[in-house]
Amino acid sequence: MKGFRKYFIVLIITISVFIAAWLFSVYINDRKLAEIKEAQNQATVDVLSSETQFDLLQEASCQDTSNYLSSEISDLADKITYGEQNFGDQTQLALLKQQYSVLEVKDFLLTKRIAERCKQNTVTILYFYANKDICQDCVNQGYALDALRQQYPSIRLYSFDAHLDSSTIRALLSIYKIPSTLPSLVIDGKTYSGFMSVDALKKALPTTLTNPPKAATATTAVKKAATSK
């Protein structure tokens, strides 16, 4: 093929390859968004089920009550975060994130209600952060909270993007008097502002969690068992 015709044809092919790659990427990302939506719907059903179960069993034993969000909930958070970093169109993700935040608040309220009625020592942490581009301390706080959660898996941690356009989050910010300085944490009802190290977080936790009287209880139980024989 003589002249520049070939250069032009190759240009068309290359542009076509780019368009095909872009369309395929958009298609796959749509599928991923659909997966997030589906998981979110499942989580919504789980929360509603927990609430209904709680209402139904008001007078029943606390043992029958559970408020665990579906096992997909942490996976859902990871996927939303991944989507924020990798998907081009953030509009749908922002909506999903709002829904996810509402879901978290509902689970938080339910946890509190169950803990109060059933006298459970459930520790909850509300974590308010901002985008990593404007809040490096929030990234670091994330590392510290991950470490804390690994040491104390029973802690129920709820993360909220403080800058998300959501009336629910605005209400939370107002109720707990969250300052503009981020990150901010609410640990067992008390508000803390600024970065907290793992040690500082541990100190803020109730002693019932950090120093559980397991040994004494176990010893007493054994003694009681021995005495009854």
Partner: peptide, 28 residues
């Protein structure tokens, strides 16, 4: 430096196609 060896982070031991990078640049 912040979390020591409890550095956390989500480790996906199971395969999940969701995390396969399908950005246009990666496909190209």
């Amino acid at each position: 430096s912040i979390a020591g060896f409890h550095h956390g982070g989500t480790i996906h031991l199971h395969f999940d196609w969701f995390y396969i990078n399908t950005q246009t640049v990666s496909l190209l």
